[in-house]
């Protein structure tokens, strides 16, 4: 496969809705990863290196048994709390590891879609 063909495939693929794709054509294998843009509001990367974690839905925020506090270090994917919507509990995960700068919601509080809930100082970003 030449670079022109490759470019065409990638261009065609960008028009499709995917986060991860793996293609195998003859001997050529391409793997593509893309940021999940379907939910663009869950994480806002601020210019100062902080990450704001927003609510992915309207619901009631439930803190963990051991609530996340200011100063806590969290790993990527760690559970920050639960959002209850119509009796279903949905985990709120942190998109990146870091240090909790602010907790903007309280246990039992109603939260809207896109409402900022936590501010985290990204671990990686600080090192750079």
């Amino acid at each position: 496969m030449n670079s022109q063909q490759l470019e065409k495939i990638i261009n065609d693929l960008t028009k499709m809705d995917f986060v991860h794709a793996r293609l195998k054509i003859d001997d050529t294998e391409i793997e593509l990863d893309r940021k999940d843009i379907s939910m663009p509001f869950h994480r806002n990367d601020e210019a100062d290196g902080t990450i704001t974690v927003n609510s992915p839905m309207i619901g009631i925020f439930h803190a963990n048994e051991q609530p996340v506090k200011i100063g806590d270090n969290v790993k990527a994917g760690a559970v920050l709390g639960q959002i209850e919507s119509m009796k279903l509990f949905n985990e709120l995960n942190t998109p990146d590891e870091g240090n909790v700068l602010s907790v903007l919601c309280q246990d039992g509080e109603a939260v809207e879609y896109d409402q900022p809930l936590f501010i985290i100082r990204g671990g990686h970003k600080q090192d750079v």
């Binding site: 939910m39 663009p40 839905m57 919507s85 119509m86």
Partner: peptide
Amino acid sequence: AYCVGPAKAQESYLNREGILMAAVI
């Protein structure tokens, strides 16, 4: 007023659970 979802109607104005949750809250 409660924000129930993103611009796409499927996830906001057609989001039955989100709208009901706003009614409950």
